[in-house]
Amino acid sequence: MTRITRRRLLGGAAAASLSVPLPEAAAGMDDLAIVRMLIDAHRAAIARWSNLPETWSDQAAVAMWEKASCEKNKAAEALCFYRPTSLEGVHAKAEYMVGCGDFVDQEANDDWTREELISGFLPAGKDLKPWTEKES
């Protein structure tokens, strides 16, 4: 029987707040294991996308590229919007995202805003509200 702990409860709340559902394999895993699983899934999707041929000579190649792009985007969304519930999870997620162009290259990336990226590190229910300049 699985014991209900504060960490598991917070992990469930974090997963429930996701706009992208976690894979079924995440059930019962601790926070750091979930973050590592999401990182591994993103790395694998990038590898599949990167290994596609440079030229697209037919519809099948275009369909393969679209499928690989969709998988890469879904893996990136799952990692971006997952809110770790432990310091270890936050650290692992931040370390990976800082070194990954999908997340840090803001000029080439219009998939998410800085606010969305930062909000992915905040506790469930907390969101980053961009400041507004007050008129003088």
Score class of each variant (00 low, 15 high):
A47Q: 12
P53R: 09
R114F: 04
D110I: 13
L10Y: 09
V35Y: 04
N109C: 08
I4L: 08
C80T: 14
W112I: 05
M97F: 02
G120A: 08
A14R: 11
Q59M: 09
V90Q: 05
G11P: 01
T5S: 08
A60R: 05
H42N: 10
V35G: 07
A60Y: 01
L22D: 01
P53M: 11
R36G: 02
E115H: 01
D110G: 10
E77Y: 11
A60G: 05
G11I: 02
K134T: 06
A94I: 06
Q106I: 05
E54G: 03
K67P: 01
E24I: 03
G120K: 04
A27N: 03
T85P: 00
A44Q: 11
E71K: 07
D30Q: 06
D30Y: 02
E66M: 14
D58Q: 11
N109T: 14
N109G: 05
K72L: 12
G11C: 08
P123N: 12
L128P: 15
E77M: 14
I46S: 06
L32Q: 05
K74I: 13
T5V: 10
L10M: 15
P84N: 00
L18D: 06
A108H: 14
S136H: 07
A108E: 04
R8L: 15
Q59L: 12
E135A: 13
L10K: 11
A13L: 14
T5L: 02
R6L: 11
R43A: 04
N109E: 12
M37T: 11
D102Q: 13
S69H: 07
W49G: 01
A15P: 13
R48K: 14
